[in-house]
Nucleic acid binder design. Structure first.
Lengths: 245, 245
DNA sequence: AGATTAAATTGGTCAGGCCTATTGATTAAC
DNA sequence: GTTAATCAATAGGCCTGACCAATTTAATCT
């Protein structure tokens, strides 16, 4: 869970139709799965490049490329002369790749708590500049919703929440919000829920976001927290209603 | 902030000096800088691998590894048979990637909020079995502290907190607590922080953990939250005092 | 046993080669 | 003349085999 907005491994990008199953990506994927599956624990040293090459029946260069992909993704650390080691945070990062990702309700519950806290903190620390930016997002969101462009509107929804997290001046908090947001697309079931909600509600709730913005602009920490939690709780409610189908 | 010219890629993180200047990271860094500098605009195609190799006076494999690093970082897209293209979001990401790991105080602040919430949730959902396990951890921690084995005691400290997070029945929350805990070893400064606190305080604060356990055992959510936050605040306080040195 | 040194291991890089996919120009067909 | 098939140049994908530098481990010598 680094600051990079997208998922740790963007392996198999859009491979819907036998596109380019580049070998090193397959290898990287397999290794990542092994890490996520717990067969490789944090701190463990991976087999030597030469051994991996033999095991997967590929060249050493391909293995190297896979390992570099994993390193840049933050799953492993390559120590020249020593070996390749699984990082402690690897399990969390690779969890996005696997099916044991948190469910929609878990995500929403976590967001309720974390983003609530973040809103409260942000109310005390947000700058006027950021408030202006927030207002701008809100306006664009409003316009896009009015224009029925819900997809684009949701992009600003994300930016809105992310900016609040950023205003906490706490990068750890920011990363967590980012991560929770990214989880919406992490699993099949989450994607399905996001899609359903997207269809059900015609874009983000403008009033809810407006209320959050108002609280932040007057530096009302408890109010911001309450407004944020109310907002997320409302979305969660929509989730639950959809389950009834 | 350190005066080390932050590269767009988080490659070569916090190396004080000539640690492992792996060539492919240098190449990736240079290319990323060119992108960030605007010399390579989104949509542009990079020179061919063979040309880049000649330009940088390195082997083609090294260039390939650099390009793969850039691709995983989301800066470029590699189209087999066609070329390497700068992505639209490249400029944005190259600036985002510069930020480093959360600092000790950020970590503690995040823990204060997240673990506080987690404790409250856990109080409502923890099972008797888990309470027993928690008590067992507490006992072992106590014994180890008494025996001056602070290192082993801290291991149970971690287990204690992790079990509480687990008791929330929310895997997202659990992952975040796990991540925050792992961050203690993520950077040089955080390691130093952990080490200092470790030396200063003779092991985990038994009383604080006891209080948390008591609240959980009587299903007192607000109490558990308060106790947890008080505990973390106390550790943070200790750290701030140490900085005064 | 402890310190020192030598050997084995591991990642880093280079060289040259062959394959497949893409692309654009050439040519053939309509 | 326009379109379609063809072919060659170019791009990345992957392989073999080799050598270097850092690290680790084993052997050796106090």
């Amino acid at each position: 869970m680094t600051q990079t907005t997208d998922s740790p491994l963007k392996l198999n990008t859009e491979r819907s139709q036998a596109n380019s199953p580049r070998l090193y990506l397959l290898i990287a994927d397999k290794l990542a799965q092994n890490i996520a599956k717990g067969e490789l624990n944090p701190g463990d040293r991976l087999p030597a490049e030469r051994d991996l090459a033999q095991h997967f029946d590929v060249s050493r260069q391909t293995v190297r490329e896979a390992l570099i992909a994993l390193e840049v993704s933050g799953l492993v650390e390559i120590k020249p002369g020593s070996g390749v080691y699984v990082l402690k945070s690897a399990a969390l990062k690779s969890s996005i790749l696997t099916d044991d990702a948190p469910g929609p309700l878990e995500i929403m519950e976590a967001r309720l708590l974390v983003e609530g806290d973040a809103a409260a903190l942000a109310a005390e620390r947000i700058s006027n500049e950021e408030l202006l930016k927030l207002k701008a997002y809100l306006n664009q969101m409003t316009a896009l919703v009015a224009a029925q462009k819900t997809a684009e509107a949701e992009a600003f929804d994300g930016k809105f929440h992310q900016l609040i997290a950023s205003a906490t001046r706490n990068s750890a908090l920011q990363s967590m919000v980012e991560w929770l947001w990214s989880l919406r697309e992490s699993s099949e079931i989450s994607r399905a829920f996001t899609e359903k909600v997207r269809r059900q509600m015609a874009g983000p709730n403008i009033q809810a976001h407006e209320k959050i913005y108002q609280c932040l602009s007057r530096r009302d920490a408890p109010g911001a927290k309450a407004a944020m939690q109310e907002h997320i709780a409302q979305v969660t409610e929509a989730y639950i209603l959809l389950v009834a189908d």
